Amino acid sequence: QLNLPENTDDWTKEDVNQWLESHKIDQKHREILTEQDVNGAVLKWLKKEHLVDMGITHGPAIQIEELFKELRK
């Protein structure tokens, strides 16, 4: 059970990391997002292209984008 703020805009980069870990996103990809200071407010704007530009491969980038879309519903 994750204990994250209800509003994703309030998520810290550590919260984002924890959420991605719960969805089995590889540590190396989570570390990239942490290094790039991606918090919840930033995550909602990220598209696959942004994630790929940061060095995340296409498969996980699509997965992260789709997971966040599902979360926002």
Rank of each mutant, 00 (worst) to 15 (best):
Q1F: 06
Q1I: 13
Q1E: 10
L2P: 03
L2Y: 03
L2Q: 07
L2N: 03
N3D: 04
N3I: 03
N3G: 01
N3A: 00
P5Q: 05
P5I: 08
P5T: 04
E6S: 06
E6P: 07
N7S: 08
D9W: 09
D9Y: 08
D9I: 10
D9A: 09
D10E: 08
D10V: 09
D10H: 10
D10T: 08
W11P: 01
W11R: 00
W11T: 06
W11Q: 00
W11H: 00
T12P: 00
T12I: 00
T12L: 03
T12K: 05
T12C: 03
K13V: 10
E14Q: 06
E14G: 06
E14H: 06
D15M: 07
D15T: 10
D15E: 09
D15Y: 05
D15L: 02
N17T: 10
N17V: 07
Q18V: 05
Q18T: 09
Q18M: 05
W19M: 09
W19I: 08
L20A: 03
S22K: 11
S22Q: 10
K24M: 09
K24I: 09
K24Q: 11
K24A: 12
I25N: 00
I25Y: 02
I25W: 01
Q27V: 09
K28E: 13
K28V: 10
H29F: 05
H29D: 15
H29R: 05
H29P: 12
R30D: 02
R30W: 04
R30M: 02
R30A: 04
E31V: 07
L33G: 02
T34E: 09
T34A: 09
E35G: 06
E35S: 11
Q36H: 14
Q36T: 13
D37Y: 13
D37G: 14
N39K: 10
N39W: 00
N39E: 05
G40M: 10
A41M: 12
A41F: 13
A41E: 14
V42I: 02
V42Y: 15
L43Q: 03
K44E: 12
W45Y: 10
W45P: 11
W45H: 13
L46H: 06
H50R: 15
L51G: 02
L51K: 01
V52I: 04
D53S: 07
D53L: 11
D53F: 03
D53Q: 09
G55D: 00
I56V: 03
G59E: 15
P60V: 14
P60G: 15
A61E: 10
A61V: 01
I62R: 15
I62D: 15
I62M: 14
I62T: 15
L67N: 13
L67E: 05
F68E: 04
K69F: 13
K69G: 13
E70C: 10
E70F: 09
E70T: 07
R72G: 14
